[in-house]
């Protein structure tokens, strides 16, 4: 091949490469393919969250579980149930009300169970009856929930408390106040009952009060509200906010030497006088243990 031909081939190749580069720059940068028929799996993460919310809201209305499942599958999540639970958790962590996260938790639970479950409905507070003067207070949780009333009777001389609480004074003086008789009020759904109370003597779970809520089929229930009260306050939380530990799981950190009263809002179960158990490590040293409370619907 002579010099002239070699130069021509070189120029042709060079021009070809430059042209290819220009074409590529135009097609990738200046005028890339425009998406007009996108699949939901390609949605940005925040739009996927929005999509899940709408799927859950739609499911809450039509109770069509296979359809909700099919719609969730469009998003391409590896584990749609975990995604729903995690999103509900994120919403609560960012200050959203549980009313907004509830459809997600309900859908996650129903998908896990494989059937349409009963919607979580708050039940009336339990009623306490004693022969003395009666105290009644009422409150409304949200505009979408039925009015919830509290009733309790107590000795006028005793501190005004709703649930029995750890007194600020030594426990021995608590005997002055008669303990109210607990009468559970029937709720719209099957009530949860405490089926086991286990002491956990693991230093890693010290002072941790764990909850596990199960339905009658032993499936875990997400989104059930639990109220823990003690002498200095009250805390409310929901099952299913730690999906990695189970949809029916919730926990609460206790203080040593404090008595807690537990109420499962969904179903009305009430457990008084719960406290951190005393455990002994292999060296003979006492430490506050943990406790696992399992509730189940009959």
């Amino acid at each position: 091949m002579n010099q002239l031909t070699r130069n021509s081939v070189l120029q042709f190749t060079l021009a070809l490469l430059i042209g290819f580069g220009l074409g590529l720059a135009y097609s990738w940068l200046l005028s890339p393919v425009t998406y007009v028929d996108a699949h939901p799996a390609l949605l940005r993460a925040d739009f996927k969250d929005q999509y899940r919310i709408i799927i859950a809201a739609s499911y809450a209305a039509n109770k069509d579980l296979p359809r909700a499942q099919a719609r969730l599958n469009l998003l391409g999540d590896v584990d749609p149930v975990s995604e729903l639970s995690a999103q509900a958790q994120r919403m609560l962590a960012t200050g959203e009300t549980f009313e907004k996260a509830r459809p997600l938790a309900q859908l996650a639970t129903d998908l896990q169970q494989g059937y349409v479950g009963e919607p979580f409905t708050p039940t009336p507070f339990p009623t306490f009856n004693t022969p003395n003067a009666q105290f009644t207070s009422a409150s409304t949780e949200t505009e979408t929930q039925p009015e919830i009333s509290e009733e309790a009777t107590f000795t006028p001389a005793a501190p005004t408390v709703f649930f029995e609480q750890t007194p600020l004074i030594p426990l021995a003086q608590e005997t002055l106040t008669p303990r109210p008789t607990f009468t559970p009020t029937a709720g719209p759904g099957d009530p949860f009952a405490l089926v086991s109370q286990e002491t956990i003597c693991d230093p890693g779970m010290s002072k941790v009060m764990q909850f596990m809520l199960l339905d009658s089929r032993h499936d875990q229930i997400a989104g059930a509200e639990i109220v823990v009260t003690w002498n200095q306050g009250e805390d409310r939380f929901f099952t299913g906010l730690k999906p990695e530990l189970g949809n029916g799981y919730a926990d609460f950190t206790m203080e040593a030497d404090t008595v807690y009263n537990i109420r499962v809002v969904t179903g009305g179960a009430f457990v008084p006088d719960v406290r951190a158990p005393v455990c002994t490590d292999p060296n003979g040293v006492n430490f506050p243990g943990g406790i696992l409370l399992t509730f189940q619907q009959p």
Partner: peptide, 29 residues
């Protein structure tokens, strides 16, 4: 040669290996 190169570049960029979108908005569903 330049024209052929551009044509190849366009075909490659639009058909063979187009830009992949992963974070689209719902308006393009």
């Amino acid at each position: 040669a330049l024209a052929i190169g551009i044509a190849f570049g366009l075909v490659y960029g639009w058909v063979i290996e187009p830009v992949e979108y992963t974070d689209v908005t719902p308006d393009v569903l």
